[in-house]
């Protein structure tokens, strides 16, 4: 399938900056296309297989590119400029499913007690309280707010169980950011997010980051916490059938806890996204 306009017009993270250190050329794959990143005299550039130069930018610790000449602007995260925060980029992890599936799984709090047992959830506290989901029409993005969940170890800095408050943001079909109560500082949010590089319709590389206030853990300690959580998700993601995202309502029955997932799917449909979506008759 050729990429739809919504998918084609986005910026995509294709690696952390240090990933290109000491490499003159590095092949990357994005939206079923082979690209080459070149590193010359400190400058990074990206070309497609025909040798055309693509737009690039460096932001949020990553190199971004787009297959479009006039991409939609990359969403803002002003928290990256706040002093005192620590950024840990966790590196790209390959997952055999549509990147859209990864976003949807990230939004789903109901899996915490069963997939991230004793870290992000416990089985005795498995109910998901209702929360608000809103479309920000001006920015064209989704916000799920007032999400509350009991977490035994909400982050590497947590010293015990706490009721964690969450906000989820989906500003891009292949990006999602979680804003969660900071365990050591009041009135601020810690950020955890995914920048997904769609490789094929049913295969992706997930670049994740954490941007937190934490004066206790080492960067490597934060990295291990994040990677351990994501590998728990990876196994679940790889066992989902079909590997592409089923958008047809005949497929999976939504529940209240899936409100953000419903909003995400509706938003993808409204934007006429087709690449990475499973067709009902092809999976049966």
């Amino acid at each position: 399938m050729t990429t739809d306009n919504f998918t084609q017009s986005q910026w995509y993270a294709i690696g952390r900056l240090p990933d290109f250190d000491g490499v003159a050329q590095k092949p990357v794959r994005l939206l079923s296309r082979d690209l080459t990143v070149s590193h010359e005299a400190g400058d990074l550039s990206v070309k497609d297989a025909e040798g055309h130069s693509l737009l690039t930018q460096v932001r949020y610790g990553h190199l971004w590119t787009s297959l479009s000449d006039r991409p939609r602007p990359l969403y803002d995260m002003p928290e990256f400029d706040e002093p005192g925060r620590r950024l840990v980029t966790a590196g790209g992890v390959g997952v055999r499913c549509s990147g859209l599936r990864c976003v949807e799984n990230f939004l789903d709090m109901a899996h915490f007690p069963f997939v991230h047992t004793d870290i992000l959830g416990v089985e005795e506290h498995s109910s998901v309280e209702s929360y608000d989901v809103n479309m920000d029409a001006e920015q064209d993005e989704i916000w799920a707010t007032k999400c509350k969940f009991f977490q035994p170890m909400a982050s590497a800095a947590a010293s015990g169980g706490q009721m964690t408050e969450y906000k989820y943001r989906v500003p891009h079909p292949y990006s999602t950011i979680l804003y969660k109560t900071c365990p050591i500082q009041e009135d601020v949010w810690d950020l955890v997010g995914l920048f997904i590089q769609p490789v094929e319709e049913d295969e992706c590389i997930v670049h994740s980051f954490i941007l937190v206030f934490d004066d206790e853990n080492t960067d490597t300690g934060l990295l291990h916490f994040q990677q351990n959580i994501f590998l728990q998700d990876r196994m679940i993601l790889e066992n989902q059938v079909p590997r592409k995202l089923p958008l047809d309502p005949r497929w999976e029955l939504p529940t209240r806890a899936d409100a953000s997932s419903i909003a995400y799917r509706r938003w993808l449909k409204a934007n006429e996204l087709q690449w990475g979506v499973a067709l009902f008759n092809e999976a049966a």
């Binding site: 952390r16 990933d19 980029t89 966790a90 590196g91 960067d219 490597t220 990295l223 990677q227």
Partner: peptide
Amino acid sequence: QAVDFFPGRE
């Protein structure tokens, strides 16, 4: 002692 095996190649 946590070692940054990936992505840092520590």
